[in-house]
Structure formats: C-alpha cells, structure tokens
C-alpha cells in the first residue's frame, strides 16, 4: 500500500464531487482498511481478527447478533477504543500507529450513536457548530451559516434554537447526524441509529441516511434493520463472535447465505418478522 500524499492525508484537502463530505478520498484508494484487528476488554476478546476494506462512496452494513462486536468495531475505527493488535488505515494512513494525533483523525470521521448523545445544555445550532468552531477553527458566523444550511437541508430549520430535550427522538437523531456532517467528514460511522426510536420515527432517520448514500457518502453502518440494510448497502458483512463470517452484496447474503451461522441468524430474523 502506498502512503497517501501529503495533502491527501489528514491535511483536509477538499474534494469537489460530493457536497457533504469535505475529505481526502483519493480515487481508487480505500477509505478504510482494517487488517487483523483484535480488541479485548480484560480477558474478554471481542474482536478476533477483523479484515475489512471500504472503498470510497461505499456503503457497508454490519449485521450480527447483539454482542457480536459491531459497536466495538465502529468505536475502534474512530479510535474511541484502542486496538490490541492489527492496523486500521484511513485513506492509506495507519491511524493506529504510535504518535498519531487522534483528534486530527476523528475530525475526518463522523460517528452517530444509538442514544444520540446530543449536548443537552446547548441549542441545536450550538450542538452542530461546536465542532466546526472549536476544532476546525471556523469563524462563528460562517459556522452558523453552514449549520443553518444543513438544518434546512434536513428539515430541521425550525428546531434551530431549541434545546435537545424539546425534540422528538427522531429529530434528535437527525440533529446528531447533522452534527457529525457539519465537520464535513470523509466517512460516517452509524451505530444502530434507529434502535432507540419509536417505530414511527425510524423512517425519517433512515431517509436521511439514504440521502447521504445518494450523495456519495462513505458509510459503515451497524444495524438491526435488515430491510434497510438490504436496500441501502453495497455490501453486507455478517459479524459473529468477533470475526466477519460472511460478506457480499445484500442480495447474496440475504437470499443465499453460504455460512451455516449466517443462515441461522437470518432464519431467526425472518421468524421474528423483521425481514
């Protein structure tokens, strides 16, 4: 693997073709690459050798039983959890190498959590401008203008000055997505962003994600929404006990799974009426 060139690394060169991401995805280069990633919590080994590569503009859905390590995988990519073994490369740069500025890396990765985690003491607009102002050093008026534009785009402009606890779950989660987008990330990690929502609020959030996919955002999505995964994913990865047991285009994985554990998992999903 060749090193990314100086400006293509974490210098933040803008890319013209996708209006939402402002980051260095060099043509033909992998956006994310995991090589033999291991992660343990104490004696508990959660990830046992994950190999995965994500191409620019690719949408990958991680599926698997609860506890299989989906969230842990996403948190490792974002360096919220240090890996025990293996490497993670972003646009060709090893971000697990010693001496890497983790804050600089995180700037280019947007992550959205299951429980939204909006800042309750800030208005919606403040929530989404905090990163641009304090991390990227964007002047406040510019950041607010960009923030307002994003809120308009995602149908949240009337919530701009509200505090998060005034918003519905679906609105909160959309704000959380916009907060991540405001940093103009090169890749988005979504961790079960709909599972804390009432069923009738799920579709508005999924709609936003669909829009991101259409705009060419590179995404790694952990989800229990199998129908959604089948629709949106370029590739589905089935995670089981810390390894990727099976991966491929959704049609293949969902209709003709090869691995018996994948078959078992999907059968349970179908029986539960969720596919």
């Amino acid at each position: 693997m060749s090193e990314a060139d100086a400006t293509g690394g974490f210098g933040g060169a803008a890319r013209g073709d996708a209006s939402l991401s402002g980051n260095p995805a060099l043509v033909g280069q992998e956006a994310v690459r995991l090589e033999g990633v291991h992660k343990s919590f104490g004696v508990l080994e959660i990830l046992r050798g994950i190999d995965l590569s994500v191409a620019p503009h690719e949408v990958i859905c991680l599926i698997g039983a609860s506890g299989s390590g989906k969230s842990t995988l996403l948190r490792c990519v974002n360096l919220l959890e240090p890996v025990n073994r293996g490497r993670i490369l972003l646009w060709g740069q090893d971000v697990t190498a010693p001496g890497v500025d983790e804050n600089a890396v995180r700037r280019h990765i947007g992550i959205v959590f299951q429980s939204f985690n909006l800042f309750p003491h800030m208005t919606v607009l403040r929530n989404i401008t905090l990163g641009p102002i304090r991390v990227l050093g964007v002047p406040r008026d510019q950041a607010e203008e960009a923030g307002r534009a994003l809120l308009v785009r995602f149908g949240l402009s009337d919530k701009r000055d509200d505090y998060p606890d005034r918003l519905s779950g679906g609105q909160q989660q959309r704000v959380a997505i916009v907060r991540a987008l405001a940093m103009r990330p090169g890749i988005m990690l979504l961790d079960e962003v709909t599972s804390a929502l009432d069923p009738e609020l799920v579709s508005e959030v999924l709609g936003v994600i669909r829009e991101l996919a259409d705009a060419g955002m590179t995404m790694l999505i952990a989800t229990h929404e199998m129908g959604f995964a089948r629709d949106i994913a370029d590739r589905v990865c089935f995670l089981d006990e810390g390894v990727i047991l099976e991966q491929g285009p959704p049609r293949q994985v969902f209709t003709a799974p090869v691995n018996s554990r994948t078959q078992q998992f999907l059968r349970r999903i179908v029986d539960a009426g969720r596919l």
Partner: peptide
C-alpha cells in the same frame, strides 16, 4: 457518552471538559 460524543468530534480532552462536561 457525552465525553465520547465530544471526543468523536475531534475535541481534545481539555476542550471536551471545557465545553461539554464542565457546563
């Protein structure tokens, strides 16, 4: 989770404390 959200935006430990945790 508030710290995780702040750090994931790229805020340093000090800035997370200053803008998210302390208030």
């Amino acid at each position: 989770s508030q710290v995780a959200a702040a750090r994931s935006l790229g805020l340093s430990q000090w800035k997370s404390l200053r803008f998210v945790v302390l208030p």
